[in-house]
């Protein structure tokens, strides 16, 4: 099966005078799993809505598989966008929703759909409006996976599910991805749970893309340095400091950027403790209000 790459160039989206997406540029190779991280209101859903042709951008270009997606039948039928609340009509039954999906998605796999329906115990005869939040999520996940769309986007799609259902989703996603490679974009708050699935991570903050990096590389660029205040201050001079904490005379600092071998040796000589930073912590530090200045963010996003 072919996979589709995505190019976004100087993208802008305005709601009236409010700019939800500000000059976002990135390029995603086809056939990978991407994580899109951002705080509430950072523009994740707006960005994904443009990729899925739910909305048209105010400015800039988007191409999927080399073509502009909006109102492009050839591209739209290859991009499946699943939102947490779903876009299914409330007055339809679950089986009607599945029927519609089966008739619309060119690569729909009905056997796989049946497997997922059984896995999540989806009540086929119930109306969508009568479904619990978890069941609505399960319906969305079922459609997204069974659509086998070359670009499949989950926007917090599994938020309503309980932990066992979420893990079942991660397992299915991974299994299906390895069997039939396609481009997945997953926006999430649950970074600890799902972070290890991402090959690359994009971080949006206030409508700007502040980070696009391979997950491992991004993680390797964060470090925590703990030790006596004086020594920590000495070693962190000139480094980008994301956050710091004091406990008595012990200072712990989260820095961002490549630590050189010299830094490491120096730190060890000063008796400092060096440690990695989790993706979640990096995300929190990079997007907190009093975190980086915009200038620093710009600098940090450059590899």
């Amino acid at each position: 099966m072919m996979t589709l790459g995505i190019e976004v160039n100087n993208l802008q989206l305005k709601y009236g005078s409010f700019a939800a997406i500000k000059n976002v540029t990135f390029s995603l190779a086809g056939g990978r799993i991407y994580g899109l991280l951002g705080r509430n209101g950072s523009g994740k859903t707006s960005l994904l809505s443009i990729l899925a042709s739910y909305r048209e951008q105010t400015n800039g270009q988007v191409t999927i598989g080399g073509e502009a997606p909006f109102e492009n039948a050839k591209i739209m039928e290859q991009v499946c966008f699943i939102q947490e609340s779903g876009s299914f009509s409330d007055s339809s039954s679950v089986s009607d929703v599945l029927r519609l999906s089966a008739s619309c998605w060119p690569n729909w796999d009905s056997e796989y759909a049946a497997h997922l329906i059984a896995l999540y115990d989806l009540p086929l005869k119930k109306l969508v409006s009568a479904l619990s939040r978890g069941m609505k999520s399960a319906l969305g996940v079922t459609i997204g996976l069974a659509s086998r769309a070359p670009v499949t986007i989950f926007d917090e799609a599994y938020l309503g599910m309980d932990a066992p259902s979420r893990y079942a989703f991660y397992d299915e996603l991974l299994k299906d991805y390895m069997e039939t490679p396609r481009t997945f974009i997953i926006s999430t708050h649950l970074i600890e749970e799902v972070g290890s699935l991402f090959e690359e991570v994009l971080i949006l903050d206030q409508g700007r893309l502040i980070m696009h990096e391979e997950t491992d590389v991004l993680k390797s660029r964060g470090a925590s340095i703990t030790g006596s205040e004086q020594a920590v201050d000495q070693i962190t001079e000139g480094l980008t400091i994301l956050g710091q904490q004091m406990l008595g005379r012990t200072k712990s600092v989260t820095v961002f950027g490549e630590l050189t071998e010299e830094h490491r040796k120096h730190a060890l000589a000063l008796g400092l403790e060096l440690g990695p930073v989790s993706l979640q912590d990096l995300f929190v530090h990079l997007t907190k209000k009093e975190g980086l200045s915009n200038e620093q963010k710009e600098k940090a996003s450059r590899p």
Binding site: R32, I33, Y167, Y170, D171, L174, K175, Y177, M178, S196, L197, F198, E199, T215, D216
Partner: peptide, 17 residues
């Protein structure tokens, strides 16, 4: 790598690395 990826619930590219 795929078996590793599925077992540890990680991206296959990470396992391949």
């Amino acid at each position: 790598t795929n078996q590793y990826a599925a077992f540890y619930r990680i991206n296959p590219a990470t396992a391949a690395k």
